[in-house]
Design a protein around this nucleic acid. Structure first.
Lengths: 146, 146
DNA sequence: ACAAAATGGTCAGAAGTTCTGACTATCGTG
DNA sequence: CACGATAGTCAGAACTTCTGACCATTTTGT
């Protein structure tokens, strides 16, 4: 009876997701990383601490590997990342955060934490936990990358 | 203790959101609307029953009005929508679902309902309701369109 | 009433993103 | 060791999105 909101759940997901993207990118821009585009940041955000393969980035961001490669080219040119050979596979290269990328990553982390804090404050810890818990569960049937 | 998932909340939002987009678009394609692109569908999905102004669509989809206009041009060419004068403002035009658009909208609704059902089944009614409730609350501080 | 500012929309052009197809090199398996 | 799968790149086209300039109409302030 209380949830008369007719908004489709995907729309409800889109709104805070897009807000988070905008807020993070704005924070990065304010910290001297104004040359990062949204598309670049989407790939950058998925690079694992130990480095990621192009294919992994592509699958995770849900773009083709060509697109991911193009983004990594730009991130590399902007000194955000570097490509190193993958010691376990001569075909592959690992994309690693490097140089400016480390500071950018730290700034992004800060933005993210502020965001999560603001959300947790608005929802209260209980509902925030419930939100994350439900989303994590949903991931089981919606994550193509797994 | 149970939620040790380090995934940032925005990533958790992205995964099911993107899944929903893909699933809906795939269903539309299977119903004879394979000419709809994702970008077009994002605008199309935001058209109100009574019609929407270009500016409203742009704000809601978070693109410039030029971009929204370009998408509406294509939707119009594909006979998904029509533009009619806004009786309350001579500057404005209302974008309305028309022709094929009605069937496409019905197909999208079906896809959406199947999606929500599948999610509700996976989460259970309680957690599904909690998810939607939390997302609706989050909207209050993240929706630029309001 | 009227000038100024804001709003709704379009046109033109450039930039950015993303895709398909083709190809090379390396890995894993039978 | 041949074969299919995987990692990545190159080239080119298509699609999406933006910035800037502009016109018409509405709203606001005096």
């Amino acid at each position: 009876m209380t949830d008369a909101d007719p908004s489709p759940t995907p729309l409800l997901l889109f709104i805070p997701y897009r807000y988070a993207e905008n807020a993070s990118l704005a924070h990065l821009a304010s910290q001297g990383f104004g040359d990062l585009t949204l598309a670049q940041a989407r790939v950058f955000a998925r690079i694992a601490d130990s480095g990621s393969r192009l294919t992994e980035l592509a699958e995770s961001a849900q773009v083709t590997k060509q697109t991911a490669g193009y983004m990594v080219d730009q991130l590399e040119a902007g000194r955000y990342v570097e490509r190193v050979p993958d010691p376990t596979d001569a075909r592959a290269r690992l994309v690693r955060v490097a140089g400016r990328g480390e500071q950018a990553r730290a700034a992004a982390m800060t933005a993210l934490q502020e965001l999560e804090s603001a959300w947790a404050e608005h929802l209260g810890p209980r509902r925030m936990a419930a939100l994350r818990e439900a989303l994590s569960a949903l991931r089981e049937i919606t994550d193509p990358y797994l």
